[in-house]
Amino acid sequence: MRYEKPESTAEAVRLLANEAGLARVLAGGTDLLVQMKSGMVEPDLVVDIKQIAGMRTVTPEAGGFRIGAAVSGAELGENAEVVAQWPGVVEGFNLIGSTQVQGRCTMAGNLCNASPAGDAVPSLVAANATARVAGPNGERDVTIEQIPVGPGRISLAKGEFITSIFLPARPARSSDAYLRFIPRTEMDIAVASAAVNLTLGEDGTVTAARVAVGAVAPTVRLVEPAAQALIGTKLDEDALAALAAACSAAANPINDKRGTIEYRTHVVGVLAKRAALIAYERAGGRK
């Protein structure tokens, strides 16, 4: 195995594109090193992108934020402006692993690991965030939900990697929330999860919504009917019940050591309801 730490995006692209064997990008390494330890992945080349300018910074852009691909959970959690604007995105990201893992893990890494249960991903999908991808053909921006295509598989081509994630500007009275279910209080992989992103009108009526669910399908899913269930409501009981039902209906989970189909299908609805209420209150709505 070779270890390289290029200082420019172009050099990183060249290294990744030219590697005949298996190449892996290293940002936080909290998934990659675990996979290497178990022998699941045996890369011939590891490209550490942390020396590239911009990878570890958060920059305001067009009313939103551009977050470098190597910004860790702990770093983003300390960024008061991002936390204020996108509390759901940050709380999802900050739920990954332990305090120690937070010192290293990245949103782009969580996304590219392409686990259906990645904690950073549902909020990013609900936020309508985009990923900037650098590659042999230059840069392109793609929506978050386009990146993973199945468990452990992503849509990026050879030589491509994510350089940053962009959180857009948002209207007043907007906020978001993320909840996951795990058997313990920390350290587990989500059994089911839900992110809700809301914008409210002046009277507290939901005017825009995006809802995404995790760990209940091969990839994180944006659930349009769930959003529709909320728009035009003040999150009354019926709206919440319709939200839960829409999330459960969108679920297509598996039975495994972490949960059953039945359990995940039910709990994803419960989480969506609870997350919606948190987002609503954060956006200034009163129940």
Binding site: Y3, K5, L26, G28, G29, T30, L33, V34, K37, V46, D48, K50, S72, A74, S98, T99, Q100, V101, G103, R104
Partner: peptide, 13 residues
């Protein structure tokens, strides 16, 4: 200054 698991960091980093 950042708390990490040293098993999840490469020596080269």
């Amino acid at each position: 200054g950042r708390l990490v698991c040293s098993c999840l960091v490469l020596g080269g980093e």
